[in-house]
Amino acid sequence: MPAPRGRRTVPLWLACWLLGTPLWPGTAAHAAPPDAPAREGRVVDRVVAVIEGQVLTQSELEMEARVALIQRGAVRVAALPLDEQTLQGALELSINQRIQVLGADRLQAFPAEPSEVEGRLDAFRTRLGGEEALRRFLARHDVDQDALVAVLTRGLRAERILDSRVRLKAQVSEAEVRHHYDEHRDLYPGEFDQAARTAIREQLVRARYGELAAQALAEVRKSAQVRRVAPFAREARR
């Protein structure tokens, strides 16, 4: 897959050097051309974190946060300024996805099928409101469609990787469903019929899946090399 425009694989020594400077030359369309006078103190982009040697910038994180919001149906919210809480959540998502996909890349595992990626892109375009809305979104963030596809692909692969580790363990037995029903009869005034069993099973599976997913991600992140740089990124760790 073509590399997203505006992204580079940055050696770790260079990433560490960049942590000490607010400028990120050459990665944003707002950078001054070579023959233009530089404006002292002008911030082009900021490094938010370095994840397994890969630099994540503020502009990348903001774009990825809005992609996640739009995928979840919050299109209007995605058009508003992002607060630190939203950026913290987006950063955690980005770290989790990157670590999982990098691990899968080393094993050449969990590739994304082109048809699945195209489906994600079509769904994203539809949520935005069509092709013209998609073009405006890309122009707003100064990225091309390849950059968006890269984000969607990484998200798709991360979901599949996590699901492969958690889904079977999250299943519940009929006895567990019945026990929950007996323990919470006040919540289920009707009979223990198929509709009640299905609702309870879905609830229990969803809760167990969330717990197991959190444990799996925590395990994966134990050995990961993540350096948080932005103030809100450091706060998210505590």
Rank of each mutant, 00 (worst) to 15 (best):
R227M: 02
S173R: 08
A195F: 10
R227Y: 05
T198G: 13
S223Y: 08
Q194K: 15
A218G: 06
L187F: 10
E159K: 12
K222V: 07
A218C: 01
A216N: 09
E174Y: 06
V172Y: 03
V177P: 05
R167Y: 04
D193V: 13
A230L: 13
L217E: 01
R167Q: 11
Y181H: 12
V229T: 05
A196G: 14
P231F: 10
K169S: 13
E183C: 00
E219Q: 00
L212H: 02
Y188E: 03
L204I: 08
Q203G: 15
A233E: 13
P189W: 03
S223A: 12
A158P: 05
R201S: 15
E183A: 06
E211H: 10
R227F: 12
L204G: 10
E159P: 00
T198H: 11
R208Y: 04
R206F: 02
A213L: 03
S164N: 07
A214K: 05
R165P: 03
L168N: 13
I200M: 09
V220H: 04
R221Y: 01
A218Y: 00
L187G: 13
L168A: 15
A170Q: 12
V229C: 11
A175K: 07
L204Q: 11
K169W: 07
L168T: 13
R228A: 06
V229I: 14
V177L: 07
R185Y: 06
F192Q: 12
